[in-house]
Design a protein around this nucleic acid. Structure first.
Lengths: 238, 238
DNA sequence: GCGATGATTTTTGTATACAATAAGAGCATG
DNA sequence: CATGCTCTTATTGTATACAAAAATCATCGC
């Protein structure tokens, strides 16, 4: 099979290529689901695409593995992560905790400019949804959540949330019900911005948490989806 | 100055040396404060100590940097991280959130064997404190918190907590009041185990959070400690 | 056709060479 | 004595060569 995604990673000659740049390019490709779960990421291929040697690619892959974006097993090619159902639930639970706290901390502490920026994103998402432009709607939706992460008063929680947003994108790509066109959840984001403006911290926290819960419920997490883990059944020590 | 810490990192020839092993050795050395904040970690030196080439060291350092154990700036030697006061407060706040949730999830869900194991650790800590063996007391205290992280029903939160425990150790080494012999907080750990056994989840959460708050208050986080950040004062763009 | 076996190819693991950058020592000068 | 300069040294950045492991593929026997 041809590796068509290479086109999307082609380098811009005006940019300095280093591992940081490559990490961001791959992260973004995973975030926007152009690199679906389980995609193979061979070092030499990536090296040719980005025009650098394996040393640089290797560093980038190591960092991506630390961020749980890809999985690396010894002597095997790196792949885009594909969490199982149990881990998916844990990712959502962790995100509810972290993003709920971030929303609570942010509540009442955003100035007019920031609230306007959020409002613009919310309206852009709604507009994209009405136009039926799902990729653009996803992009706006992600921008809203990233805005919370980037402006979190606690930067530790901010980067944790950034990571969890990415991992959530991966599992949504994996477990989205086939028949469902969109994961749009109506006025949830608009209500969130309103609560961040005039609401109480605990209201904002609860709203974020139920919003993420609704998102999780849109997925098909019936256990049968998962490949049977023979090792856990027969107790084989890997 | 001599690099005396090398002795502590000497390799055991019966163990296979790879980047995973090196990461764990360095993490443990930082955790037990044998590698204090700002310690220089040159690649060639580490390579000689562990008997491997820079390739392996480089991979280990990249992972340690992703975990915020060390900081790497371009063309400069890696150093053990030394968070400033603001980041220290954020680390504690994040840990209160995560460890509180883990304790809440664990409450009432540990079996007798696990509660006994925790109880043994608590008594060992108390014993070490009475003997005045502070290094051993710290070791036991860390073991208690790591036990919570390792047994968290949510593995995502578990690894987040593991990281935060390490980062907390770093800032304690940095900001411990010079006159203070110990950070022992009396019966806090014993009460925690009791709450995990018979208490309500929210009680366990609150107890963990106040425990961590007490620990933070033991530190000297007066802002004057921090080096003045000239860039932020004069608005220089780095 | 199906499965096993062995050769070939692909891919990663590690070491090393060389370039580029930063840090430090020594020295001259005001 | 402090300051600025140059040269040397220490250290990281990158590419590449070779070894080791895994995956692939063709072949053979049944």
């Amino acid at each position: 099979m041809t590796q068509r995604w290479q086109e999307n990673l082609n380098v811009d000659s005006s940019v300095r290529i280093n591992d940081q740049y490559i990490v961001e390019r791959i992260r973004h490709a995973v975030l926007t689901q152009r690199l679906p779960p389980n995609t193979r990421l061979p070092e030499v291929t990536l090296g040719e695409v980005f025009g650098v040697s394996r040393s640089v690619i290797r560093k980038a892959l190591t960092r991506l593995a630390s961020d749980h974006v890809i999985v690396q097993q010894p002597n095997q090619v790196a792949r885009v992560a594909a969490p199982d159902v149990a881990e998916t639930r844990e990712i959502f639970a962790a995100r509810r905790l972290i993003e709920g706290e971030v929303a609570s901390l942010l509540c009442g502490h955003l100035d007019t400019v920031q609230l306007d920026a959020l409002d613009t994103l919310v309206q852009a998402e709604q507009h994209a949804h009405e136009q039926g432009d799902e990729p653009r709607r996803i992009e706006q939706s992600l921008a809203i959540h990233h805005y919370l992460a980037d402006h979190a008063p606690n930067r530790i929680l901010g980067v944790m949330l950034t990571d969890l947003i990415l991992r959530t994108s991966i599992v949504i790509a994996l477990y989205k019900r086939s028949g469902m066109a969109s994961c749009y959840l109506g006025d949830d984001h608009a209500i969130l911005v309103e609560l961040l403006h005039h609401g109480e911290p605990d209201q904002a926290r609860s709203h974020v948490q139920t919003h993420l819960d609704s998102l999780e419920r849109l997925l098909d997490l019936s256990a049968s989806e998962t490949r049977i883990d023979l090792a856990s059944i027969f107790g084989a020590t890997l």
